[in-house]
Design a protein around this nucleic acid. Sequence first.
DNA 1: CTGAATTGCGCAATAT
DNA 2: GATATTGCGCAATTCA
Lengths: 167, 167
Amino acid sequence: MSKRSQQTINTEQNRGTVSVIQGQASGTTTTTRPPGGSLQLVPQLVPATPAEGGGKAKMKKTSGDKDSDEYRQRRERNNLAVKKSRMRSKQKAQDTQQRVNELKEENERLEAKIKLLSKELSVLKDLFLEHAHNLADNVQAPGAEGASPAHNNNNNNGACNNNNNSQ
Amino acid sequence: MSKRSQQTINTEQNRGTVSVIQGQASGTTTTTRPPGGSLQLVPQLVPATPAEGGGKAKMKKTSGDKDSDEYRQRRERNNLAVKKSRMRSKQKAQDTQQRVNELKEENERLEAKIKLLSKELSVLKDLFLEHAHNLADNVQAPGAEGASPAHNNNNNNGACNNNNNSQ
DNA sequence: CTGAATTGCGCAATAT
DNA sequence: GATATTGCGCAATTCA
């Protein structure tokens, strides 16, 4: 657990931005500072002169920017925030995935129900038709006396609603 | 476009692995090597003694590991892979989210359909009951010949539903 | 302007 | 051995 390091990016036509870095630990006290475990100093390459053209080379605040105490503090905070953010993000993704599963199940349930209802409906309709036929027969073939001439509850005037449900 | 950098992590009880880095920019060839342009040496933290138990400190290949040509190449490849992987990951997340939306819609459709079927079923059942009653009346009160034809239950709201469910 | 949250990026360890 | 994933830190940017 120690810190300090350096990094530079500078990709493409990126402006030469150099930076530093280091990771630190978190295992224990967050406020851990350079424990000085077993680290060694080593020469590093770094952009030589900061000298700028129209340079307003501002930036000092306690030891030239990096390794500044405040800097470290900010970094640490940010690192924390990043971690948090990523955790959430991951969690959210997981939740979403689960939502998918739940919805799938729900869907199956609903489809099953629809199937059932459809079947019931179909049975009932058939029953109805049969009935209608019987009545019709009675009407058309009133042959026997004891017949049942009477009524014609012949409802069912071709009311077929073609419900195409769309939404 | 240049690169180079370094970083070490060392998190938690992570084995103190520190590294170094540096980046510089110079915006020229990608293959930029240590340009030596204007760089300065700076102390860096590094794991103290590499001394290992069965230590086989191998690693040379053109200038001690880093800044090795091959190293750079690998890094670049990896960076590419990483980018790709992340893209996919992101894409997948998006897809999942969309799937949720689709499933939600589907669900609503299904529920609507269920509602409809239920209603139809209910109507049909009522019709049935009424019918049953009529028949019962006829049986129980066959009294007059032309007798009790009375009611004409004319309910009949749409029965035949051509439910075409599509998806 | 200050600080947290996000996002893109590179490194390195690890998994495939 | 090479690519794919994953955790992590840095820094730029976006939000509050």
